[in-house]
């Protein structure tokens, strides 16, 4: 239905609802800002569909994803009669491991990415 890819906003022409974005190949491409201009700032990570910015990616919301997964784990554990706190801890550890790998990868360690990729 709607294929879209993440991109970083390089520059904004607010008057004309236009922006340059980089989808990760280093080529600045002009796109239309389809949503409220106030939502978009230089350096933001956005989703681009057919040359239209359709949303800003809110990486904080990944925490929400993690919370939901913890909730899911808790519920399942309760239903199965397991220890819900232990299930939640396991999920937390899983994500901590990923964030640790992401951190080390950012610091230049190439090998660690392989651990989960």
């Amino acid at each position: 239905m709607c294929w879209a890819v993440p991109a970083v906003v390089l520059d904004i022409d607010e008057k004309n609802s236009l922006a340059y974005v980089d989808i990760g190949d280093g080529i600045p491409r002009p796109v239309v800002i389809g949503i409220a201009n106030e939502r978009i700032n230089k350096g933001d990570l956005v989703m681009v569909h057919a040359g239209v910015i359709i949303t800003k990616l809110d990486l904080e919301a990944i925490n929400q994803f993690i919370e939901e997964k913890k909730e899911l784990a808790r519920e399942l554990a309760l239903m199965a009669g397991d220890d819900p706190e232990k299930a939640v801890r396991e999920v937390e550890e899983e994500f901590n491991k990923i964030f640790e790998i992401a951190r080390r990868a950012r610091e230049g360690e190439v090998k660690v990415v392989k651990e989960i990729w």
């Binding site: 890819v5 989808i23 990760g24 190949d25 280093g26 080529i27 681009v48 990729w117």
Partner: peptide, 15 residues
């Protein structure tokens, strides 16, 4: 996961 594709190629193809 073991096929080597550069991130920029993968992003461009992805777009």
């Amino acid at each position: 996961s073991s096929i080597p594709v550069r991130p920029e190629v993968s992003f461009f193809a992805g777009m």
